[in-house]
């Protein structure tokens, strides 16, 4: 074996040895996948997005009401255990009217009440029941000018 071949082989072995820890470290620590919201959290996130959308075109009189309700949904989301920051996903193309918000709130209140009776623990059932009541109040608040 020539000296050159020996050096090349040694280099390959070294490269392989150096590569191993790098490979094993990559498999040991895969990149973190983003958290997936549960159905209740996903619903609250969708409602917050709908209010953000509605606020982009709201008049002065509506804005205060919409903002209060939007913030209450943020409180619901946090109470349901979602700790991630909220991304602003509004698009200027889509208009969201009060009627659509009312329908969404009505459905959310029903869904939260159902979830309360299917909750895995009593504390979550209580939180979901209170959120359902709050969302039923939103339907009425949105009827007011």
């Amino acid at each position: 074996m020539t000296d050159r071949r020996r050096v090349l082989q040694a280099g390959l072995v070294c490269t392989a040895l150096l590569a191993l820890p790098a490979c094993s470290s990559e498999t040991a620590e895969p990149p973190e996948s983003p958290p997936v919201p549960d159905p209740e959290q996903a619903d609250e996130l969708a409602l917050i997005t709908a209010y953000d959308q509605a606020l982009t075109t709201a008049g002065v009189r509506s804005e205060a009401t919409l903002r209060v309700i939007r913030d209450e949904h943020v409180a619901h989301l946090r109470a349901l255990g979602w700790e991630q920051p909220l991304a602003n996903t509004t698009t200027s193309a889509q208009r969201v009217g009060r009627k659509a918000l009312q329908n969404a709130e009505r459905e959310a209140a029903r869904s939260r009440a159902r979830a309360a009776t299917n909750a895995e623990d009593s504390e979550r059932a209580q939180i979901l029941a209170l959120i359902a009541a709050s969302e039923a109040q939103h339907v009425v608040s949105l009827e007011r000018p």
């Binding site: 209060v68 309700i69 913030d71 209450e72 409180a75 619901h76 109470a79 209140a109 009440a113 309360a116 009776t117 059932a125 939180i127 029941a129 209170l130 959120i131 359902a132 009541a133 709050s134 039923a136 109040q137 939103h138 009425v140 608040s141």
Partner: peptide, 22 residues
């Protein structure tokens, strides 16, 4: 669960403000 909702709505009818957790 329905009773909580009913109380919250009746309170609102009589003038209570909406709340995140009535």
């Amino acid at each position: 669960v329905r009773q909580i909702r009913a109380c919250a709505l009746r309170a609102q009818f009589w003038g209570a403000a909406g709340q995140a957790f009535p």
